[in-house]
Design a protein around this nucleic acid. Structure first.
Lengths: 203, 203, 203, 203
DNA sequence: GATGAATGAGGATTCATTCAT
DNA sequence: TATGAATGAATCCTCATTCAT
């Protein structure tokens, strides 16, 4: 009893940082990183702009932490899939499904990633984005190539074009997806996969 | 006549304006609208920041003109397709092909549109973006619905999801497309259409 | 008694205050008063910035106490010398020696004094600096004048220039002096006096 | 006539930069670099704070340019003296005199140098200060050593202590010197040299 | 048409200080 | 005594824009 510091275990106190990052991510996603002022974030968090600097070094460090956290979790999910050693078609399905789950969990982060990663990669601080992109590309290309070799994916398509098609197709969904809407991430994944694998034309 | 202040394409070099807009569009596309300073545009154009204000009212008016020009040409192309009264599958093919041609012609404008339109639509000045989006959605949804009714597109898919899938699939290409690369816009369109219509899986 | 809020040397650990002032003085001397943040002082003291405010009213009050303590001890030493009623040459020698002893004991305070006193004197709170300066000037000028009158100091020199020469000569030493180095304060005083009195040229 | 841009050759226009640096130097010297806000400089210059950034990259770059200009001129003067290959006593006299002339010409810069150089040297940008200090020390030590060897300076003094004595003695003068006062720089130099060389005691 | 110089409204960040615990 | 979190004022700097020349 006397050693207890926060009697109400319900209220957040150790995760204040996480809450603030969540808030920041939402505003970044909504308005764009550059157009988001530190004051706007603070307003959303119910504090003054300067107070954010007790928790974070800079606006940029918030961005970094948001993206890093997202990518860490993304790769954790991907790695589980990849470690399962499935066939190429099942791997693709699992990766896409996992991607939609991540969009569901980290929608703001994904939206930010989509909009900002292009010019961030050039900065040292965001080198991890470039590294992730390289792994990402390798993972997908390998899966597609295995599928072509196994005869489950079409051989008449430009493989890099196919890669970009699948990649973009999945991730742009973050720009319109709203968690808690009509479709669960798994349902969206199912329909997307159906379109990607079999097309929208009737056979 | 003597009261005219700004040369609105009437006086002198009308191409200068176009050149400057081209330059501005490239920088906006490269760095993002907010992150682009007027000075950077001027640097690229070989003049001083203040000098741009002889040609344009404001940074925002450059953006507006860039997007307006692009959308005007896009709809001019779309209207030609739509006026031809083709079947739904052929309409979809023609629209996608036309879209890739526009990406080829207005890559910077398309990239800007992708990144910035979401938060621009809320401003009065950019109301034309919202209007274009509504026409766009109607056009595509109608085409898809006609296709489903005619039995050429699958009936088991959520039609709005399909719409977003096709829409995004096409336009994100602007983020990686480089004019003068391996593929002509028509070739890319052909492959994309093949994937969208028939899927990437073998049958 | 129970209404007392801040322990002004009365309560509890009276040395803690002194330790903290010592720490603060070192940081002020090292980095300059303005460039020293309260946080830096707290870091050196192994506590958090806010905690310093239990001990002191403000950053400025620390500065004041540091300087006041130094000047009190300096004048205590000077007064002992002056009360001895020595001849002008011996007085000068004793004052210089005492000064080097004070530099040895209060090096940080002396360094701060050198750097900051000029703009501090204008503030009411630091009026004591101005008063000390006036006493200082009077003491030295009187000693020099007595020396000239007695024929022990040269009569052909501008007396105010001489005063500044001697004054500066002694106190700037604080900027390079490191206690515990090769020379004791008395040894440095001896050599400085030798130069000041007899010059560096051979006779 | 038609090629002439500024008809009034009296008003400054190309040297606006120099005027602003002069102003900045005076404020820096008066209040200390850290305590000087950009706004204060701008106020003194009759413009707004932001306007300074048309001329300079940063507050720090102003400081750098001020110090660099001063040191360049100082060494130009010193080099002239050193190139004359005078005897050690005459060299010392000439260097001291030159120093007082520089104090006269660049009083604010010298005052800034005195106060700020210690913590500036650690920054890459101000490496030139460290280099100057090394040359300075070498120049003076060499001169003093030659003098001792030639028998014109006393051999019984610690040479580094003597160096510091002479060095400080001269430069602190910048803290109280006011151009246009009673004494010309040459007159002050003469008296200082008299004290430094022959002492203040009668013989 | 273009330049040079300035404006003025922010915007990110710092920091002394406060205060409940 | 000390901590953690916050405040709010000030600071440096940026940038779209203006305007006389």
């Amino acid at each position: 009893m006397p050693t207890k510091k926060k009697p109400q275990a319900t209220t957040a106190a150790p995760e204040r940082r996480g809450e603030l990052l969540q808030t920041a991510a939402e505003v970044f996603a909504e308005q764009g990183y550059n157009a988001t002022t530190v004051r706007k974030i603070a307003d959303h968090a119910g504090m003054l702009a300067g107070s954010l600097y007790y928790h974070f070094d800079s606006k940029e460090s918030m961005l970094e932490e948001i993206l890093r956290t997202f990518l860490d979790e993304l790769w954790s999910g991907y790695d589980t899939v990849l470690d399962a050693d499935l066939g190429p078609r099942e791997t693709l399905q699992a990766l896409v499904t996992e991607s939609f789950r991540e969009i569901d969990r980290h929608r703001p982060a994904v939206a930010i990633y989509q909009k900002e990663s292009r010019h961030l990669v050039t900065q040292d601080r965001f080198e991890f984005l470039a590294e992730s992109q390289r792994r990402f590309e390798k993972t997908w290309l390998t899966t597609l190539e295995r599928g072509v070799a196994d005869g489950v994916f079409r051989a008449d398509l430009d493989i890099r074009l196919t890669y970009r098609f699948v990649r973009d197709t999945v991730w742009v969904a973050a720009s319109w997806y709203r968690p808690g809407g009509h479709h669960s991430p798994e349902e969206i994944a199912r329909q997307y996969l159906s379109m990607v694998l079999d097309g929208i034309a009737t056979r």
